[in-house]
């Protein structure tokens, strides 16, 4: 089971939409994946606690993160969406 940490400013609006899209994309690609949402300020702590496979965020993140961090804005705007999806799938298939 893969784990993606989804972070945004309040963990309220954008991260919910982005998290659902990620779950849907994973499912469509036969990848077992769950998501956990975090506020930007809590994201680093959650990263340390949960050891996710990737972080998708619609905000800037602080701290030393050594896993892939994907800008999740494409899931909202639709701009460069396919390349973002490809990037995510590649990470999750590892």
């Amino acid at each position: 089971m893969k784990l993606v940490l989804v972070a945004c400013g309040t963990a309220l609006a954008t991260s919910t939409v982005v998290a659902k899209k990620i779950e849907q994309i994973a499912q469509e690609n036969g990848i077992e994946c769950r998501t956990v949402q975090a506020k930007a300020v809590d994201a680093f702590q959650k990263y340390q606690e949960l050891h996710p496979d990737a972080i998708v965020c619609t905000c800037q993140l602080e701290g030393d993160i050594d896993i892939p961090v994907i800008n999740g804005r494409a899931f909202l705007t639709g701009i460069n969406l396919q390349s973002t999806i490809d990037q995510l799938i590649e990470i999750l298939k590892k």
Binding site: G9, T10, L12, A13, T77, G78, I79
Partner: peptide, 22 residues
């Protein structure tokens, strides 16, 4: 929140989605 975590999106006509804590 908008100052710290801005919400502007570069869609074909620019959109912003301001919001704050529950």
């Amino acid at each position: 929140r908008e100052r710290t975590f801005p919400t502007g999106l570069p869609t074909t006509i620019g959109v912003a989605l301001p919001h704050t804590e529950a």
